[in-house]
Design a protein around this nucleic acid. Structure first.
Length: 922
RNA sequence: AGGGCCUUAGCUCAGUUGGUUAGAGCACCUGCAUGACAUGCAGGGGGUCGGCGGUUCGAGUCCGCCAGGCCCUACCA
């Protein structure tokens, strides 16, 4: 074995082996446990969020697989309609063509080519993380089977009246030429202006003043609205104004929606270009005047001079023209929230089009109930409120997209605009008895990607066929995902599964936090603060990291700033930490769904932990490999106190890990393991074992017992740790397992350790705690006096009870070894006490004679510090116990505990004060 | 506008139903090439738990108000 742990060579080797041998496939077992991966974009690449999410899923999966469940982790990817189409369109653009030049069929071919080329990248990266997905079952949302499921669902819901076609105002992305759902619109505050326009009254003197943030929309105005009880305008309701530039007479209407306090209290109403105005238009039966085309340029419904102008130009022209006519009252600065497409980044226009919708309200009712009645539970629970709030006010879901990449809508139109929904043109003709003379054309649009993702938990298992997998693994056990897609995906999966299968898609939804950079900033390409998980695993040179962060920027001028901050943050690039360290870092930070600030210091610490594990195993193997460990034969063994203690401790750890995992507290599980392995097994047990193994006088049985315990306990905690650190545990287990008497090809299919009350030895725990106290007392003196660790000490003991004496008698070999003590002697009651530094272990006094070793002033300072601590504590205790209310009302056990404590502290105080006095006196 | 979350050591974070002297890692200081490990060992320092008030014998923990930070939803033209 190498002296330090080298992750790179072992990781890929083991992953290859596991995958080749088919260990990731379900292995049978009475109870099923399944997780469906949130499908990443097929052409995407792995980021820190994926890494975090997959680390959690893999820990759950490996844990349950080892615990004997029939375990499936379903892999797959999503076709990501808009995102993928955009990428390919950009590639075409570089060649100077667009998708229309190519035509639909050729374009889709191009997209498939791109998918073939880059589609494997993310799944390869997932393998680097050690994710034990059953790749033999990998699915893609555009696979024939999943596409068939999508079509089936569309037709079924349509026939049930849950999908309908309608003309509505939608969120229109003028760059991508498609409708998008509410959720794909990101509104953020931006600095803008508010223009106040005068609209002259028709057939009378005077004018009204309306305010708008989008002046160009006035070309589509159909009314001006005031509040019905607004006295200023009461007389004008029912009359008309003359809309400037258009010379159209539009009514003044009254509607309670208008806020009298805001602006002038008059609102221009543009029903075809504003969601609120649309509703008001319906209430008042106003016409809809659409003034835009698909590019958001002005169309022929507007006066001639504006036609063809882009919306931005049109705005300037309208303002200028209104100003020229004297109708521009004023312009004020105004902060407004601007809706932008989450993919394109351009301003979204409310736009009147024909689209397909899912009637979400009907489907939401059972989906709400499923969470209310606990069939589905969110972890952490508070997310249920977010879910309820959205579901109870859910809007119909616009599912059609004006794209080419995706599942085409199975609807056909005749020349008269009638449409028919069915499996195919043939089926539609047959079902509707349409002769060949009737021309039919299929709907050009495709479905929202989330429509297919919503079916993911069961479409991947073969639905609509009632396959064995479907029966076994659906509902899935838990969904692990981020809060950002609760609405997009989680809610829609729940609705679909309940409607189509009358069962929930999963029992638990584990919501994790966002991974941010070390300053708490969201990681993003444009900020240049992205860390690629693979770079943490393999390491990356500074120059390469800078190049990675600054290439392909949307705003190239940010490059210098990004370079500077990268140089500051990673002056030496990023070291190679290995997958296990990265995973352990994720777990250690995974507390109750809060965001994670990723700190490079943490991963470094866990790389060191890996090295610690490696070397602990090295020590154990060096001492066990060619020796009799009592695991293969029935040779007699004798277990020492240390052996019994560490066996006891590993049981406690096992129970703690089980409890933590059951509560999705991976931070607690990882901490329990870290603490046990480093601070108990390595720091204490390995050191204690040396005093047996290196003792020529120790019996064969004792040595055998220690070797057996060393190897068995190591083997147990390797299995405990495996779901979190799969690679290092496998590598070590290959040598350790057989020595511990285990057989099998891989640790990943070994049984997960279960807590065993029987192995907990409370007396051994107490004895070791005593031993630690005494050793730490001596070490404290040694440390504070700067006595070299190699220097052997003579130690005197004083006071103490029978317990102390018998413990000393049994354990002096440990004391000598771990505290580097040459001689230990008890002082009799009447013996003179030599000048010495003092430590206390309960009532036992530990004295290290000062002669030649100890500086008087340092000891005085040390004692004074200890004494003042005790005094402060005693004051507090006396106050507490002197308070009648406390003694009366607090539980007797609490009072007794405080009294005990006070006794102990008083005694310690007296002892130390005496010591201090003695030293001062010399 | 409504709702939620967060504020604990220099930094990143734990702290179950209120009950020892509030913990860990990193960083810091001191000593150390000891036969698993310097990616290490041993010892040490460091916090009025954001502020104010309340409930309680007792509050980091429960309640209210305030300050600061983050997020979600809805959006007033």
């Amino acid at each position: 074995m190498d002296k330090t742990f080298q992750p790179t060579n072992i990781e890929t080797r083991w992953y290859q082996e596991w995958e080749d041998k088919g260990y990731f496939a379900p292995q049978g077992g009475e109870q099923a446990y399944s997780i469906m991966i949130p499908p990443p974009n097929v052409t995407g690449s792995l980021h820190m969020g994926h890494g975090f999410q997959e680390a959690i899923m893999d820990a759950l999966i490996r844990y349950h697989r080892m615990s004997g469940y029939n375990t499936l982790w379903q892999p797959g990817t999503d076709h990501a309609g808009i995102a993928t189409q955009m990428v390919v369109e950009r590639q075409l653009e570089a060649q100077g063509i667009n998708r229309h030049d190519l035509g639909r069929e050729k374009f889709i071919e191009q997209v498939w080519k791109w998918k073939e080329k880059s589609g494997g990248a993310i799944t390869q990266q997932m393998r680097r993380l050690g994710a034990s997905l059953d790749w033999s079952r990998e699915r893609f949302t555009m696979d024939p089977g999943l596409s068939a499921a999508v079509q089936e669902v569309f037709i079924r819901l349509y026939r049930e009246g849950l999908i309908y076609r309608g003309q509505r105002l939608v969120n229109w992305d003028p760059a991508l030429h498609t409708a998008i759902s509410d959720l794909e619109v990101i509104s953020e505050e931006e600095q803008g202006h508010m223009w106040h326009f005068k609209y002259p009254l028709a057939g009378a003197q005077g004018h009204l003043i309306v305010a708008t943030t989008r002046p160009e929309t006035m070309l589509g105005d159909c009314a001006v609205a005031v509040h019905p009880e607004d006295e200023r305008y009461a007389g004008l309701i029912g009359s008309t104004v003359m809309l400037p530039l258009c010379d159209r007479e539009i009514p003044i209407i009254a509607d309670e929606y208008v806020d009298r306090e805001f602006g002038t209290g008059c609102v221009k109403i543009t029903p075809a270009h504003d969601f609120n105005d649309y509703e008001m238009g319906r209430r008042h039966e106003l016409p809809l005047i659409n003034i835009l085309n698909d590019d958001a340029a002005i169309n022929d419904n507007a006066p001639e001079s504006y036609r063809g102008l882009d919306r931005v130009e049109a705005r300037q022209r309208v303002i200028a023209d209104m100003d020229a006519l004297g109708f521009l009252d004023k312009v004020v600065d105004h902060t407004l929230s601007v809706p932008r497409g989450d993919r394109s980044g351009v301003v979204i226009e409310p736009y009147l089009t024909d689209q397909w919708y899912v009637d979400a309200k009907k489907m939401a009712t059972p989906a709400i109930a499923a969470v209310e009645n606990g069939d589905i539970q969110f972890v952490p629970k508070q997310w249920e409120n977010t879910y309820f709030a959205w579901m109870r006010d859910i809007q119909d879901w616009c599912i059609s997209r004006q794209l080419w990449w995706g599942h085409r809508i199975p609807a056909w139109y005749d020349a008269d605009g009638n449409f028919y929904v069915g499996e195919s043109e043939e089926a539609v003709r047959k079902d509707n008895t349409l002769g060949d003379e009737i021309m039919l054309r299929q709907d050009e649009d495709v479905l929202d990607t989330w429509f297919s993702s919503a079916l993911w938990t069961f479409s991947t298992l073969g639905w609509p066929d009632e396959t064995e997998e479907l029966v076994t693994f659906h509902p899935s056990s838990v969904l692990v995902t981020g809060f950002d897609i609760i609405f997009f995906w989680v809610a829609r999966m729940i609705m679909m599964a309940l409607h189509l299968r009358q069962e929930v898609p999963f029992h638990t939804v584990y919501i994790h936090g966002l991974v941010r950079d070390s300053e708490g900033q969201k990681m993003s390409k444009s900020k240049g603060n992205v860390i690629d998980p693979i770079d943490l695993i393999d390491g990356i040179e500074l120059d390469e990291l800078i190049l990675k962060r600054t290439s392909g920027l949307m705003q190239p001028q940010l490059a210098t700033k990004i370079e500077k901050s990268t140089r500051r943050q990673f002056p030496n690039g990023i070291a190679s930490y290995g997958t296990d360290a990265l995973r352990f870092t994720y777990y250690s930070l995974a507390s109750t769904g809060r965001d994670i600030k990723f700190d490079i210091g943490r991963i470094e610490g866990y790389r060191n932990f890996c090295n610690k594990i490696w070397n602990a195993a090295r020590y154990v193997l060096m001492n066990c490999e060619t020796e009799d460990c009592g695991t293969q034969t029935d040779a007699p063994v004798e277990l020492s106190l240390a052996d019994r203690w560490i066996i006891s401790k590993v049981q406690e750890t096992t129970a703690e890990v089980a409890r933590a995992v059951a509560n999705y507290r991976f931070d607690m599980a990882s901490q329990a393991l870290y603490e046990f392995i480093w601070n108990e097994y390595c720091d204490w047990y390995l050191e204690l074992s040396k005093s047996v193994l290196w003792d020529d006088n120790a019996s064969r049985e004792a040595k055998r017992g220690t070797r057996q315990t060393l190897i068995r306990v190591l083997e147990i905690w390797l299995r405990l740790l495996h779901p979190m650190m799969p690679f290092i545990t496998e590598e070590i287990w290959q040598s350790v397992g057989p020595l511990a008497g285990k057989s099998g090809p891989t640790i990943m299919l070994q049984p997960y350790p279960e807590p065993n009350e029987h192995d907990i030895d409370l007396r051994a725990n107490e004895n070791i705690e005593w031993l630690k106290l005494v050793i730490e007392g001596v070490r404290n003196i040694r440390g504070e006096m700067n006595i070299p660790p190699g220097k052997e000490l003579s130690v005197l003991l004083r006071k103490g009870d029978e317990n102390d004496r018998s413990r000393l008698a049994k354990n002096s070999q440990y004391l000598r070894k771990l505290a580097k003590i040459e001689t230990i002697e008890w002082l009799a009651k009447d013996d003179d006490v030599p000048l010495a530094a003092t430590a206390l272990a309960g009532e036992l006094e530990i004295l290290v004679p000062m002669a030649g070793l100890i500086d008087k002033d340092i000891e005085i300072a040390r004692l004074t510090r200890e004494i003042s601590k005790l005094e402060a504590d005693l004051t507090r205790l006396q106050g507490k116990l002197g308070n009648a209310a406390f003694v009366d009302k607090a539980p007797a056990a609490v009072v007794a505990k405080e009294q005990d404590k006070m006794q102990t502290q008083l005694q310690a105080l007296t002892t130390l004060q005496e010591q201090l006095q003695r030293i001062r006196d010399i």
